[in-house]
Structure formats: structure tokens, C-alpha cells
Amino acid sequence: MKFALPIALTLGLAFTAGCGSGAQAQPDASPRALIVTGEATPSVNWLQLLRRMNRAPLTVPHLGSRRVEQYWTVDGQPKQLAYREEVASDGTGRFSVQALGVTNPPMSMGEESVFVALQSARAGFVQRYRDFAVRDVDAFVRNYSIVDTGALVTVAGRSCNEFLVQRTTGHSVRYWIAVDRETALVLRTRHETAAGVLLGVVEFETLNLAPNFATVAWHQPVTHEVPLSSDPSQALAQLGFEPRLPHGDSAEFVLQSATVVTAPDPSGGAPRVWAKHALTDGAEIVFLLHGGADPAPGPDDVVVVAPPVGPWNTAEGSLHGELFTAMGRVSVDTLLDLLASTL
């Protein structure tokens, strides 16, 4: 009996000491996730580097060729794709991404022509969403750690620092990136699972920072996608319904863009208007689409999760009589949480 009080106090102290240190702690403003290995004082201003990496793709004039490799599992089957593309940016927002040819799998000339033509139509997506990028510095600092490996590597004849980027919470993913020391352009990205299985490589093979853009055909939008107004009444007029976004105390994702997209109606009716929101956790992109009233709602709210296509997951369904789709290089749980938070 005489030991009961000390034991209770000890247990109480241990319990309270353990609280508040979990991975779900509230994020603070300082870059807690940045780690510099092997150096007492950082040789790099990390925030300044991240901001430069965020702006470089559209503000640094460049012309070059890249090699793209994908090692994905699709419908349970391992698949590989490797092709080369030419990229250009004039530093004022204009860009061009042109597929040059496929190196793997072997294709006939006709199949390759189809691939090249289709990739031209996807140039906007490729430029904005396909590759690793620091898409929002504050969100990146909250959700990722970046480690300077200390290695100096040469990519496309340029001297680069090598970093390891890993997500600190939620789904596991890592990127080995080579960042040009002068321009902060990401010249090489190696995408791996947390277990080290290679998912993809994007690497510049040539790079010209003072190019002649005379022969470049700048990207022309091919989709009828227009900005969605942030004013609720104007958004309602554009869509015919009130768009929904995840709400609640979510510091994980921030809104990057909002547009209106028109797509064919699967039931054969008039084309359907969708609100397309692109959210980012700092590096990855999640698309949240809201299509308004479901023409054939069921009795329950149901979300259908499709098999992953490489690192991409999708979930779509009818919630409270309205159509929603979530798609991103994040876990299924993250997508389902986002959908749940729109309700």
C-alpha cells in the first residue's frame, strides 16, 4: 500500500510524457522536417533552395532532351515504358514538351506515331503534374524531409547536388533528386517505393540554358479547361452547382488550382461539367473532381476504389447524391479521407 502513491505518480508522469510526440502532432511554422546530415551548420539555405526549386521550371529558360522510364504494375502485371522527349521553357511561362520516340517496349512506326501524337495532347499534364517538383514550399516543409546526401553528381554535363526526399507522414514514397547547383532545376529524379523498388526515372540527357527557341512549337491547350472562380456565386453560375472542397483542419493538402472541365457523360447524355481541384502536399498532386448531381443515385453512399496504376490510386463514387472522384500518387486511405472530408 505504501508504494501505491509513488507508483501512480510514476505511471502518470510516464503517460503524460508520452503524449503529444506522435506523428499526428500539430504542425508548427518552423521547418522541423529538414535534416542536414554530417554538418554542424547547413551549407545551404534550405528554404531559399526550395523556393528556387519551386520557381525554376517556368522561370529558367532552357531547352533539352530527357529520358523517361516507368516501371509500374498495372492490373497486377509488371509493365515498362521508356521514351525520350524534348522540353523547353522560355522563362515567361511558355513551355513545350514533345515526345521524340519510344525505346521500350519495341513498337512499330505506326504505334510510335500514335504514342507521340497522344503525348503531345498530354503535354500540359506532363509539364504540370507528372514529375517530382516542389509545388508548395510551406506544405513541402510540413510533409517531407529532404536530406543532402553530400554527393556531387553530373547530369547532362551540369554539376548537381543529390538529395533524398521522403514523406514524413502518411503514404511512403521517396525521391532521389539531382538539383542543378546554378539554376535549381531538378535534372534527375529517381522515384522509389519505401522498400527501394524503382518506379521511375526522369533524367535530362542534354540541357541548353541559352537556347534559340526559333524551332520550338509552344504548347497550345487542347482541353476546354477554364479557371473556376473563387467567388461562390460565380462558381455556381459556371458549374450549375456549388463546388465542394475538403474542409476541416487539414494541413496536409493545399489547393493549387481550380478549373472547370467538360467531359462526356457515361450514360450518353449531354456532356457533364466538373469542378477539378488540384491539391498538393508540397510535392504530390491529388485531383479532386466534383461532378454535381448523380443522375442515378443509389440508396447508399458508395465509393469504388480501382486497382492502382503504378503509384496512382483512384476512388470515385456517389456521396449524398453527388459525383466525386479522387486521384493521386497517394495512398487509398488518403483519397478516402479527402472524399470523406468533403461531406
Binding site: L81, V261, R272, G310, E316, T325
Partner: peptide, 17 residues
């Protein structure tokens, strides 16, 4: 089983894979 708009996005993301 996905809707056309989602399949289009997946197609773009996967370079047709």
C-alpha cells in the same frame, strides 16, 4: 470501371500505360 474523365486523367498520368 472508372468514369471516362477519370480514365482520361489516368491515361495522361501513366503516358497511356
Amino acid at each position: 470501371a472508372l468514369s471516362p474523365i477519370t480514365r482520361d486523367l489516368l491515361n495522361a498520368a501513366s503516358s497511356g500505360m
